[in-house]
Write a protein that binds this DNA or RNA. Structure first.
Lengths: 207, 207
DNA sequence: GGCGCCGTGTCGGCTAAACAACAAAGGGGC
DNA sequence: GCCCCTTTGTTGTTTAGCCGACACGGCGCC
């Protein structure tokens, strides 16, 4: 049996064969999707294209949907990798890049995703939000370790911020990408960083 | 231990892992040669680039030179595959393609092979001749089965013809590819097909 | 000379991938 | 409905690849 590594931590001694096999499967999946869309795609096809045994496929993925999630996550992570500056961590600059990446990625889907595959959008979007959450959680935990003395759990913070960014980007992409993504990013950033108090005028400050 | 398949015959149930691994190694080798030439190339480098364990390398190749031979053979076979018509077998047309392939491949080496790698030319040439031999032997054996009644062994015939074609192509490439390869091919073909009797005028027919 | 470093080639133990075979669940066709 | 065929998951056994360690041979350096 293959070892399911606990996602977050740095248990990075992965068997090269596992890396290769996963890469082959994901690559084959992406190729096939590009060629014929998701409809009617079989596990056999994917395994065959990946030059991998079908049983091996099931050793890595519970089913086709898990592979789907994984492929999306990976694509979005790659998108992020190219856009994020070298310095990782919770900074205004990085957050801005996050918003931009989410916007552009979701906007790109509207063009790339064929009509018949529209049904998969929810799955894709769930993974984008999930990846944002994971990434933010890492940053936040690293920051908390330095600041400390806070009573809000990193999980909640990551959840709030990831959903805020994701949702804003999704709405923007649905509304025809009206203002430029840069403008949206700045506005989103203001709210996220400053909070409600920082961005709206209220009769009195909220608590 | 990996099974050393007997070269010629049709025992073609090869484990997909073996195919993949060999392809990875040969591919890595070609990449590295293209980047830095053969000089100072280590087995470690090749294995690393191929994402394959060093021990695995030795399970497939006795040493770097065996890989070298294999890579050359494969490249030349690929050259042949693209040039040969669909119909395989001993025909004037196919033989002509063989001569042309040998000429062009050897001529190409004169340009591609850097000065420092010139020492490897003999190894390369040996493989070209060897591949010609193997291919011709296959064709000849297939023909003999139909004609029959001959006393000359296929091995000798294949040896003679392969060396004839190879040597002529080599000389031509060394002499600056003076006449076009097409012209040479026709002339070589005449001698090979017709024999001495068919191509020179002698006082009396030989034997 | 001796020394450390690096590449080579080999070996035994462990792990992942291949394979073949299976039951079960759709999905048409009629 | 039933039948045929394909795809799906699953299981065991076999096989190839990974790893770590080893002895050996060069090669520079002091």
């Amino acid at each position: 049996m293959l070892v399911k590594e606990s996602v977050g931590k740095v248990g990075k001694r992965v068997d090269p064969r596992v890396k290769r096999t996963r890469a082959l499967i994901v690559g084959a999946f992406n190729e096939l999707v590009a060629e014929k869309g998701h409809a009617g795609l079989t596990v056999q096809e994917i395994a065959e294209r990946a030059t991998v045994n079908r049983a091996t496929f099931y050793a890595h993925f519970a089913d086709q949907y898990e592979l789907f999630d994984c492929a999306i996550s990976e694509a979005f992570r790659e998108e992020l990798r190219q856009r994020l500056p070298a310095s990782r961590g919770l900074s205004r600059e990085n957050l801005r890049a996050l918003v931009l990446a989410a916007c552009d990625y979701l906007a790109g889907l509207n063009k790339a995703c064929s009509r018949t595959d529209r049904q998969f959008r929810p799955l894709i979007e769930a993974r984008v939000q999930g990846e944002l959450y994971e990434l933010l959680l890492g940053w936040i935990e690293a920051s908390v370790r330095r600041v400390d003395g806070r009573s809000i759990s990193p999980d909640v913070t990551a959840s709030v911020v990831s959903w805020a960014i994701f949702g804003a980007a999704l709405d923007w992409s649905r509304n025809g990408a009206a203002p430029s993504s840069e403008e949206v990013a700045d506005q989103v950033l203001s709210v996220v960083v400053g909070g409600l108090d920082g961005s709206v005028s209220l009769p009195a400050r909220i608590s």
